[in-house]
Simulated scan of single mutants.
Amino acid sequence: MAFQTAKRDLRRRMRSTLQALSATAISQQSSAATTKFLSLAEYQNAKNIAVYLSMPSGELSTTGIVKDALEQGKNVYIPYIHTQEKTSVMDMFALGSLTEFESLQPDKWGIPSFLSTQIEGRQNAMEQGLDLIVMPGMAFDHEFRRLGHGKGYYDHFLTRYSNLTRKMPFLVALSLQDQLLAEEIPVVEHDWLIDAIVVGDGRYLDRRV
Rank of each mutant, 00 (worst) to 15 (best):
2 A>F: 15
3 F>Y: 15
4 Q>R: 13
7 K>V: 03
7 K>E: 03
7 K>R: 13
8 R>G: 07
8 R>D: 11
8 R>I: 07
8 R>C: 09
8 R>F: 04
9 D>R: 11
10 L>W: 06
14 M>P: 02
18 L>M: 13
20 A>F: 15
22 S>L: 11
22 S>C: 11
29 Q>T: 13
29 Q>K: 12
30 S>D: 06
31 S>Q: 14
35 T>R: 14
35 T>A: 14
36 K>A: 14
37 F>S: 04
38 L>I: 09
39 S>P: 07
43 Y>H: 11
43 Y>P: 05
46 A>K: 07
46 A>V: 09
48 N>A: 15
49 I>M: 09
52 Y>C: 03
52 Y>E: 00
54 S>P: 00
55 M>H: 06
56 P>W: 09
58 G>F: 09
59 E>I: 02
59 E>P: 02
64 G>S: 11
66 V>F: 01
68 D>T: 07
69 A>L: 08
71 E>F: 12
73 G>K: 02
76 V>H: 02
76 V>A: 05
77 Y>S: 03
78 I>Y: 08
80 Y>V: 10
81 I>C: 13
81 I>K: 06
82 H>G: 08
84 Q>A: 11
86 K>E: 13
86 K>D: 13
87 T>N: 10
90 M>C: 06
91 D>H: 13
92 M>I: 06
93 F>M: 05
96 G>P: 00
97 S>R: 01
99 T>E: 15
106 P>I: 04
110 G>F: 11
115 L>F: 12
117 T>H: 12
117 T>G: 01
122 R>S: 07
122 R>F: 13
123 Q>A: 14
124 N>R: 12
128 Q>F: 14
130 L>T: 02
130 L>P: 01
131 D>A: 05
132 L>Q: 02
133 I>C: 00
137 G>D: 00
141 D>L: 03
141 D>T: 01
148 G>H: 07
151 K>H: 12
156 H>L: 05
160 R>M: 07
160 R>F: 03
161 Y>H: 06
161 Y>V: 05
161 Y>C: 04
163 N>C: 08
164 L>T: 15
166 R>L: 15
168 M>A: 10
169 P>F: 06
172 V>A: 03
174 L>I: 07
181 L>A: 02
183 E>G: 01
186 P>K: 04
187 V>M: 13
188 V>C: 15
189 E>R: 14
194 I>T: 01
197 I>N: 04
197 I>E: 04
197 I>K: 05
198 V>T: 06
202 G>H: 04
203 R>Y: 02
204 Y>P: 07
205 L>D: 05
206 D>I: 05
207 R>P: 00
208 R>Q: 12
209 V>P: 01
